[in-house]
């Protein structure tokens, strides 16, 4: 049977979520960052050969509805705790970027359900002093600069808006709006999460694109230090999305870690 991405819809607490699924085996929940997983992504194919990847679009992203006043990470965490309850047994969590923040919070809120945690270029904590921003302000920075910071090779891997269909652009802008609601203030982190990271029980891998200009590898190293026993690994020739720019290296790290 060919390995292909299926899209279905599930309802949690009355909220209809679009979910991409790929592969079979132990369940792995993928929590996306600024944009949801693309069904044709190579990293999804590679992971799907070894496990069942479940990749919901957050409310307000992709094909997922966002209920009125559902505007906070508080809402997202309740939603994903409820989603975890629908899965059998223990689950591995992979959180990318903004989704890494959610994954770290979930590992704390549902310790019995999360056995392994992978944080990929994750946001969520405050590391540096009060006058040094840790995370590039993607909303208040010129889009050309954000693009340079986001990708190791922006020309090859950055989105080409001129080539996209209208519907895709509309979706991207809706995602942007939802991201703003969830992450505008405090910007993409919870001021108290760093204090709680040492309470994470799940085995943790912190993966980082070596050339990430949105949030630097040193931030990932700081995160790994705060989580007991966490490993840190950098992926060369990758920016904020190593899963897109170096899918093979990314999948090797993830599969190696989750299979152990």
């Amino acid at each position: 049977m060919p390995n292909e991405t299926k899209t279905d819809r599930i309802t949690i607490h009355g909220i209809e979520l679009e979910v991409r699924r790929r592969g079979a085996g132990s369940p792995v929940l993928w929590l996306h960052g600024f944009q949801p997983a693309r069904p044709d992504a190579r990293w999804l194919d590679l992971l799907g050969r070894r496990m069942e990847v479940i990749a919901p679009s957050h409310p307000g992203f992709g094909g997922s509805a966002r209920p009125k006043d559902f505007e906070s990470v508080y809402d997202l965490l309740h939603l994903y705790v409820a989603l975890l309850e629908t899965l059998s047994g223990q689950v591995s969590l992979i959180g990318s970027s903004f989704g890494g923040w959610l994954a770290a919070e979930l590992a704390l809120r549902a310790p019995g359900r999360v056995d392994k945690l992978v944080l990929v270029d994750s946001l969520g904590i405050k590391v540096s002093d009060r006058e040094t921003p840790d995370i590039l302000d993607v909303f208040n920075t010129h889009p050309a600069k954000v693009r340079q910071a986001m990708w190791h090779d922006p020309d090859r891997n950055g989105p080409d808006y001129d080539a996209m269909e209208d519907a895709e652009l509309v979706s991207i802008h809706r995602n942007w709006e939802s991201l703003s609601l969830y992450g505008w203030h405090p910007f993409m982190h919870h001021p108290r999460l760093a204090y709680w990271l040492p309470a994470i029980k799940a085995k943790t891998l912190v993966l980082w694109g070596e050339n990430d200009g949105i949030v630097k590898p040193s931030y990932g190293e700081a995160m790994a230090k705060l989580i007991p026993g966490a490993q840190f690994a950098a992926i060369a020739a990758a920016g904020h999305h190593p899963e897109i720019e170096q899918p093979d290296a990314f999948a090797d790290h993830v599969v190696g870690f989750l299979a152990r």
């Binding site: 909303f139 808006y161 001129d162 996209m164 209208d166 652009l169 509309v170 979706s171 991207i172 802008h173 809706r174 942007w176 709006e177 991201l179 703003s180 609601l181 505008w184």
Partner: peptide, 15 residues
């Protein structure tokens, strides 16, 4: 975010 509705995106993003 929020300045123009998502439906306006094609006019905003295309060069």
């Amino acid at each position: 975010p929020g300045a123009a509705p998502p439906v306006a995106a094609p006019g905003l993003y295309r060069t």
